[in-house]
Amino acid sequence: MIDKLFVIEGDSNNPHRNLALEAVLLKRLQPGECYLYLWQNKHTVVIGRNQNALAECHVQQLEQDGGYLARRLSGGGAVYHDLGNLNFTMIMNTGDFDVSRQTGVILQAVQMLGLKGEKNGRNDLTIDGKKFSGHAYYHHDGRSYHHGTLMMNVDMSRLPKYLNVSPLKLRAKGVQSVQSRVCNLADLNPAITVEGMKKSLQEAFCDIYGLPVSPLELTEADRDFWRSEEAKMSAKEWLYGEAKVLDFSKEARFGWGTVRMDYSLSQDKQSVQELQLWTDGLDAEFLQEVPGLLQGCLMNRDRILARLSMSDEASPRIADDIACMLLPA
């Protein structure tokens, strides 16, 4: 049960430092604690845990313009951040994790600023059908977080310049472009500011959980871990992964996300030799395990499902879709 609330505000606009602090807070969380972490990134594209950076982002253009590429621990899709966007992260023990309650904090904060939002789809908040907030979730070692964006005055011209959205995803949303399905809260209420949103979020956080908030002090050990995580988050190996050219490629859109599968088969075509999976699916932990689980697996539905069920994070629905996608029609 949650009995202590803490609020932390980021001290930087660097995405690698900010995402590293998320990892620090998750690691130091104690039973009964719940953290609200508020942070902003400057001129950044953040991709999901299992996405292909070069497929999702016009990286060369972003870097030429002095921007940052970052990869987060959670699943979901690529997003553009600038100082017209505010990020939030709510961190708690997994037993206290409640998406409806956490989402309620965001919706109440927005309502306090005169706007009525609603949850729409798998992880979006919208007003009149247009998205102003996208969410993702991460669970590890009995601790969890729920984080997302709040678009208040984002430079919308940057979205098509830096984001490369899959046509399958756009068709599934029934829109022509990413700009056509999103909105800035300041367009609906010009009085909204980042500082005003921070204040409303803290008030809603206290109200929903029925507790006062305290500032959080980091220890020297926390700061040491923060430095090591920032180095990891900024390393090219983490940002880009290892994309290989394999023999076959398939792409599909399911209810749980868009997925691209690149793979090679054994010489007799009877088993999977190597497989890479790129996806905006929210089940990041399971989806990350899929390539390793299927290496050497016979191209047989029952064998594929048996291999995928070996994961502690296995999702039968996702496993079934992956098996259907991998096997010849």
Rank of each mutant, 00 (worst) to 15 (best):
S100T: 14
E63M: 12
T89K: 04
D11N: 12
G95S: 10
Q30R: 14
E33M: 10
I8Y: 00
N93I: 05
K4D: 10
D11V: 15
G76L: 04
V59M: 04
E33I: 00
K42L: 14
G32F: 01
V79R: 04
Q51I: 11
I8H: 00
I8F: 04
D98C: 15
I91M: 09
R17N: 08
D96P: 01
L54C: 10
S100Y: 08
N85P: 10
N14R: 11
H81L: 12
A55R: 10
N93E: 13
G66Q: 05
V7H: 01
F88N: 00
Q61R: 15
T94Y: 02
A23G: 14
V24H: 03
P15L: 06
N41F: 04
L25H: 01
L5Y: 00
D11H: 09
C34T: 07
A70S: 14
F97P: 00
G10Y: 02
H58T: 11
R72I: 13
G32T: 06
A70F: 05
Y80I: 11
R71M: 08
S100C: 06
C34N: 02
L69P: 06
D96V: 01
D65R: 10
A78N: 08
E63R: 13
E63Y: 06
I8M: 05
V45I: 11
S12K: 07
L54N: 11
Q40W: 03
T94V: 13
K27L: 05
W39Y: 13
Y37D: 01
N18R: 09
S100F: 07
N14Q: 10
Q51D: 04
L25K: 00
P31I: 01
L38S: 02
F97R: 00
R17A: 15
A20K: 02
G95V: 06
F6R: 07
L73E: 08
R17Q: 15
E22M: 09
A53R: 03
L29N: 10
N52K: 11
T94F: 04
L19I: 14
Y35D: 09
L21Q: 08
Q60K: 12
S74D: 05
Q30P: 03
Q51F: 05
G10C: 11
L21W: 03
N14Y: 04
Q64I: 14
K4M: 03
P15V: 08
D82V: 13
V45M: 13
N85L: 12
V99G: 03
V45N: 07
Q61A: 15
L21H: 05
T94M: 03
E33N: 07
S12D: 12
G10R: 04
L29G: 08
A53I: 07
L54R: 15
L19P: 08
R49T: 06
L36W: 00
A70V: 09
V24N: 04
N85R: 05
N85E: 11
R72M: 10
L21E: 02
K42N: 13
V79W: 00
D65L: 12
A53M: 07
G32C: 07
A23P: 02
Y68F: 15
G84M: 08
V79E: 03
G66E: 04
I8N: 00
A20V: 12
L69V: 13
